[in-house]
Amino acid sequence: MKHLLSISDLTRDELFEILKLAEKLKEERYRGIVTDYLKNKSLAMIFELPSTRTRVSFEVAMSDLGGHALYLGWNELQLGRGEPIKDTARVLSRYVHAIMLRVRDHSTIEEFARYSSIPVINGLSNLEHPCQVIADLLTIYEYRGDFRDVTLAWVGDGNNVCNSLILASALTGMRMIVSTPENYEPDSGIMQKARELGGEIIFERDPVKAVGEADVIYTDVWTSMGQEGEKEERLTAFKGYQISDELLSRSKDDVVVMHCLPAHRGEEITDEVIEGKHSIVFDQAENRLHAQKAILLKLIGKENEVY
C-alpha cells in the first residue's frame, strides 16, 4: 500500500507504469470494453473545496471500473463540526478501500495519511496537484511521443500545479522553464527537490523569452480559490503574463497550449487561444478520467488482472 500525496511519492518507473496503464484504459473505454477491475471496491471522496473535473473524473472512474465512489462534503461530515482528522481517517479506513481529498492545506492530507491504513490520494492541496499533472503528462505524451526532447514553459503563478509539474519534469526528463512575476515563484523546497532528482529547471522572469523554445506552454488562473481578496493586486502583478496570440507568435509554430481549467478567459489566457489551433486543453481535461483510473488501479487494484 502506498499513498499519492506528491508526484515525488512515485519512482520514475511507477510513474511510467501509471501512464502506460492510463493509455490502455483509455483505449478500452473508446472500444466500449466494460471492466470490473475494482469490483466491490469503494472510494471516499472528501471535498473541502468545490470541484468539477476532480469529482466527476474520480466518480466516473470508479463506476467504469466496477467500483463505487462516495461524495463527502467537508461540512457534511463530523470534520465540519470539529472531529479530529486522525479519528475520521481511522474510521474511514475500516469502511472503504481508498480516500481522495481535495483540501486547502497540504498538512490536512499528510495527517490523513499518517492515520489511514488505506491509500490516501491528493486530489488537490495548496502545495501540489499530482492527479492533474499525471493527466497532463499523458496528454503531452500523446502529442509529443516522448518527454526527453520536450521543453515545457510555465507562465503565470507558481502554484500547486506548477509545483507538481516541476517534480514531474525531473522524473520524466522534460526541460522546464518557469516564468512568474516577482513574489509569485513556485515553492523553493519543490525546486530544490526537483534539481536533486536531476531535473533541468530554468527560471526566466520574461515570459517572451520563456516561451521562445517551448514545445508546450502551460498556464493556470492567477487567482486561485481562497485568494479572492488578492485579485486586484494579482491582476496588476501578472500584467504581461497572459497567454495570447501575440505571445504564441514568439514561440514555435507547432507549440501546444495547456490549462488545467477552470479558466478565467481574458485574464491568464485569451478566448482566442483556448479555442484556437494550438489548444489541447479539452484533451487534457478528458485525460483526468483515464489518469484517475490508472492511479486507482495502481493503489487498490490487482495489476495482473489488467495487463
Rank of each mutant, 00 (worst) to 15 (best):
T54D: 01
Y95D: 08
A22V: 12
K231I: 11
M100K: 08
E28P: 02
W222P: 02
P130T: 09
T35L: 10
P84M: 06
K26S: 06
V96M: 07
E196M: 13
Y37A: 08
V91I: 12
M45V: 06
K41P: 03
T52H: 13
V256G: 02
G266C: 10
S125I: 10
D254E: 15
E267G: 05
K41N: 07
K252M: 09
S93C: 10
K293S: 02
V155Q: 11
L79C: 03
L10E: 00
L261M: 14
T108V: 15
D146T: 13
Q192R: 14
G301Y: 03
A44Q: 06
V133Y: 01
G276N: 03
D220E: 12
Q292H: 11
K231S: 14
V178P: 05
A153V: 05
D283S: 08
L38R: 03
V211W: 03
P181K: 09
S8A: 15
S251P: 06
L289A: 06
V34T: 14
S169G: 14
K20F: 06
Y184K: 14
T219V: 07
V133H: 00
D220I: 08
G123S: 04
G80Y: 09
G226V: 03
A113K: 09
R53F: 01
E111V: 11
W154M: 13
R114K: 15
K20C: 09
V96G: 01
W222K: 07
I121P: 09
L65I: 09
L65K: 02
D254C: 10
K24P: 09
N160P: 12
I7E: 11
L15E: 02
A113I: 05
K20Y: 12
S169T: 02
E275Q: 13
E185M: 02
I300C: 07
I280P: 04
I280M: 05
E286T: 05
L289G: 02
E230T: 08
N304V: 12
T54L: 05
A69R: 12
S251Y: 00
D245C: 05
N287Y: 03
L72N: 05
M1K: 12
D254G: 09
E23N: 11
I202V: 15
L127N: 02
V273K: 01
S125V: 13
H68K: 09
L138M: 14
E232T: 06
D220C: 00
E76P: 01
K239V: 11
H264G: 08
N159V: 05
